[in-house]
Amino acid sequence: MIDIILLLFLVICGFVAVAMNDLLSTTIILGAYSLIMAIVWTRLNAVDVAFTEASVGAGITTVLIIAALSRTQRMEAQILAGGRSKKYEKYKVKRLLLLMVILVTGGILMYGTIDMPAFGNPNDPANLHVVPRYIKKTYEETGVVNFVTAILANYRGYDTLGETSVIFTAGLSVILLLRRKK
């Protein structure tokens, strides 16, 4: 029940964030999206992913996007309000084309998920090899209580290290770009 409402929330937030004309409002709605996403992560028992979502998604990303907005234009270009001009018609055609591309891509991706094994089935090949070991031996091998955390930080440590360094580099470059010259 709660999960369904929360997922519905996410879908609504996504649509609204795309439909807004004002980029600042979009940022704020995405902040709400992050807040709800973190609850979903928590319900999936992935505590440190929720931590990351909380600090990166709701905190730092919002601040960075607002900082970027403070250097650029906030409102969408006036083509939208232009009414029946020729430019507007061209824009409409372009938009329809984009919608087609998105629909086709989405359809292909959905088709790809059909081949995947059913979610949570214990006899799937994905759940037969490493998963039992993770579940049984996490505590004695790593000493970490939550095994989602153990998978992220121990078994796939290099992967997470790579991701973290990507985020760190992104943060550094944002600081370099936004720093005000005296």
Binding site: A38, T42, V47, A50, A54, S55, A58
Partner: peptide, 8 residues
């Protein structure tokens, strides 16, 4: 989970 609530 309260730690996350605190961070939030």
């Amino acid at each position: 989970f309260l730690d996350i609530a605190l961070v939030y």
